[in-house]
Amino acid sequence: MASEGKPRILIGKPGLDGHDRGAKYVAHILRDAGFEVIYTGIRRTPEQIVEAAVQEDVAAIGLSLLSGAHNELFKRVLDLLKEKGASDIVVFGGGVIPEKDIPGLKAMGIVEVFTPGTSAKTIVETLERVLGSKAGQ
């Protein structure tokens, strides 16, 4: 549903690693860019993240993951979204993710993967572009 403000974005950390510095940083820069960010904290299951995203009616989910389980967990999130009829929610990822895995993740339906060193500006601009074009549809 159209919103006068910027879209809501959920940031979550699926899986078992507890390194949330990156996730918090991204939450922070998105907040500063005027987004409403719902932060769900560390060690969440894909089920928890997807359910929260549906209840909160977010436009996008950002998954931060440093454990190496991205191929499995990101896929699980996408599958669950489809199951819930919420595949309109954009999913992006970030964290320590090997370059060679990124094409596979994108093919799966992850719109973008932000690896360490990505600038805040890139992240914000990418999201504005992706979510903006969706809103315009």
Binding site: K6, R31, I38, Y39, G41, E47, E51, Q55
Partner: peptide
Amino acid sequence: SPFTGGAVLGDRVRMMRHATDPLVFIR
């Protein structure tokens, strides 16, 4: 934020164990 209009909504962090409970709706 009164400056950017953005927000970090973090109350849910404390309630995540109810996230998959179909009878608990958190907004």
